[in-house]
Design a protein around this nucleic acid. Structure first.
Lengths: 243, 243
DNA sequence: CGTCGGGTTGATAACTTTCAAATTTCGTGG
DNA sequence: CCACGAAATTTGAAAGTTATCAACCCGACG
């Protein structure tokens, strides 16, 4: 895979049109490549001085545990996502990170990051843009849990995943591969796994979307968007926002 | 009020011990002072090129509206909080901002901000620290809505507000002034106003906390902390973390 | 006074969880 | 290729939590 085609480059290119020089600076940012097995936490809450990562392949989730035994998944990260930017700033991880699948990721040293930012400011812009977008997604997630019922919430969630995957060419309007279990969906959406199952069946029966066998198949995009009150602007923009 | 005693300086000083020079740099960051009436939005979703603000007095809330008519309050800002850091980066506001009370705030020009950061890096550290903390709070908020029941959630919410207000000396372990209506609590916590009312009565009947007449009175801090599964480290630290 | 926005309470309905059990899928070793 | 066990999915029934609707109270304010 050439530098222009890594998921991270693809994602940033959706925000800022990057020159060849910028792309190779991006490439040099990638440090040691590491692999992680599914299901065994990469980072635990409270650990300090963890490196940041750029996800090359596989999915991970960030979650918090409650004393009562429940857990809440705050966000999923997919190929091309930057992991732990906040933990680096804050020095301490405030949540756990678990690989959902087998994962490959490049370490990013904080010093390299700051260095690259000062030398190629447009790259800094792109990364901050991506980070802002991630933050906005957490906010939207909060809104969904607070004010959407289970069906709307699920529809919204599946659309959002699709929109994120599209940036790294892992999704089309017809659907995408999705390695999440219904338990994970439940922990992400603040529902029980049983209820998630029922809601998914409803969505399937309504002819909107199918979530089965590790694949999400969208049957009626407009119907889903309407049900979920999804902001289509996420789905639309094709070229980079900043030329 | 001298520069060292503004809420913003108080808050940052809880993170980083600031020198006299740094404090006056902080002071120069404050631009035009503006006032806003309660209840009329300062910023609407979609507006571009809004300035950032430092809240001097009063409370505001950030919220999103849903097509169905509901709204979700994402966060409250209290004196000393920095408003719109993300909107400045992203150029476009992705949520509405409404003053809860009469508000006074200083504009912050993006250019001044970047300038100050490069000249006084410890100040940049402090501001980023504060921003990370705010982001962590949104995450904790999400966890609460997703996985805590109404009573735990309410207890947690009131404790968190107290912890934030303590940083700017607007709260003690006994309680604090709180201008929020039960409707706002409801929109923040993803509950109905009626249910918030019942939960508040329960907490009062349990002898834990009273929310009445614009005041939060804490009767049993330990009991509340236990019920809410609240991370006490927020409440504790007295001096700055970075000398 | 009369109104209006909170706050409070009860009754009922809706949504979601929990518990329990069956079924299917999937990875692994024979 | 098949058998097996573990994990994930599916379904039903009952219980629990929270929303909704409706009414009433109260203090602030013109």
């Amino acid at each position: 895979m050439t530098p222009q085609q890594t998921p991270f480059a693809l994602k940033l290119s959706a925000f800022v049109a990057l020159s060849g020089e910028e792309l190779s600076a991006l490439d040099r940012l990638h440090g040691r490549r590491k692999k992680f097995a599914a299901g065994r936490d990469m980072v635990h809450q409270g650990q300090i001085n963890q490196p940041a990562y750029i996800l090359a392949s596989g999915w991970v989730c960030s979650y918090k545990l409650l004393s009562g035994g429940g857990r809440q998944i705050v966000d999923f990260q997919i190929p091309g996502d930057f992991l732990g930017l906040r933990s680096v700033l804050f020095r301490t991880a405030d949540h756990n990170i678990e690989p959902v699948t087998r994962v490959e990721a490049s370490e990013v040293l904080p010093s390299d990051l700051l260095d690259t930012f000062s030398r190629t400011p447009r790259l800094a812009t792109a990364v901050l843009w991506a980070a802002s977008r991630d933050e906005a997604m957490v906010v939207e997630h909060l809104v969904g849990i607070g004010r959407r019922d289970a069906k709307e919430r699920t529809a919204h969630f599946l659309l959002e995943l699709g929109a994120r995957l599209k940036l790294v060419q892992l999704s089309t309007p017809l659907g995408y591969a999705c390695p999440l279990s219904q338990y994970m969906l439940a922990d992400a959406m603040g529902l029980s796994a049983v209820h998630v199952n029922r809601v998914l069946r409803e969505l399937r029966d309504d002819g909107l979307v199918t979530f089965q066998h590790g694949k999400v198949t969208i049957h009626d995009l407009d119907g889903l968007v309407t049900l979920a009150d999804f902001d289509k602007s996420y789905l639309d923009h094709d070229g980079p926002l900043l030329k």
